[in-house]
Design a protein around this nucleic acid. Structure first.
Length: 181
DNA sequence: CATATGATGGACT
DNA sequence: GTCCATCATATGG
């Protein structure tokens, strides 16, 4: 199975977010000495200064990180959680895709939620600003058709865009969900 | 150093 | 649906 290359991420964040559904996230856990694999089932797209929900607006470090090359890993800490993102678009632009939920393939754990999945995998800010490829990368896999992709507003965001920027695989039980969603 | 701030999660009505 | 504990940053003095 081939790794997704940089070109895959050098596109609009919403396109990347949609196509990332069904792909396989691979995380080489040095701590567990194990290669963890999980299917991406839920994502969100974030943009630049024009996106009121993006932390690129108010956070200098995140803005700088999102303007780095496509395929850069961005780890955002909020509340007591780490959220895993991948920088998208071209260098100089500020956009990223947030990985919100995973379906575990070769391990056990509740990965239905951006904070949960990082906790289960053991991801923290050590990965911040690293490039997708060694510790963590994404493999090409099944393609989710447009009809199978559900869309909604982004979660927990105070000021969201009119556009629906959250994408998930319809009917997948690993998609994060509760009364709040 | 002090303080404000949540891309959350979980408990509760 | 609402409420709130919690804590690693970012930022300003």
């Amino acid at each position: 199975m081939k790794k997704l290359n940089k070109e895959f991420f050098e596109r609009n964040a919403d396109d990347v977010a949609k196509e990332l559904l069904g792909k396989v996230l691979v995380f080489n856990s040095g701590l567990l000495k194990k290669r963890l694999r999980a299917k991406i089932v839920e994502t969100e797209a974030y943009f630049d200064e024009n996106d009121p929900a993006s932390r690129a607006v108010s956070n200098g470090d995140l803005r700088a990180t999102m303007k780095m090359g496509a395929g850069t890993i961005l780890v955002y800490g909020v509340h007591n959680n780490w959220l895993l993102n991948v920088v998208t678009g071209f260098e100089g632009g500020a956009s990223a895709v947030l990985i919100r939920a995973l379906e575990p393939i070769n391990f056990e754990g509740n990965c239905s939620g951006p904070g949960r999945l990082t906790k289960v995998l053991g991801i923290d800010k050590l990965l911040h600003k690293k490039i997708l490829g060694v510790e963590i990368f994404i493999e090409d896999s099944e393609i989710i058709s447009e009809e199978e992709i559900g869309k909604s507003h982004r979660i927990g965001v105070t000021k969201d865009l009119k556009e629906k920027m959250r994408f998930y695989i319809k009917g997948n039980k690993f998609v994060s969900g509760s009364s709040r969603y």
